[in-house]
Amino acid sequence: MNHWHFIIGAYGVTLVVFVVEILAVRARRRDAAHTAAASAAPAGARPASSAEGAR
């Protein structure tokens, strides 16, 4: 009547969800900082994919 596999399944998936969420948020912030830097950089230094290049 102990059912430890249910407990491990519950806690394991919860831990995985938290780790994935933290990693996703960190990656999103890194991408956002990079994109913001591309917007802030002088026109000549911006990558060709920047929206500024279409102007």
Binding site: A36, A37, A38, A40, P42, A45, R46
Partner: peptide, 12 residues
């Protein structure tokens, strides 16, 4: 922002 300026430095 310092973290954005740091990224901009990479692009220059």
């Amino acid at each position: 922002l310092p973290d954005v300026r740091g990224n901009a430095g990479v692009l220059r």
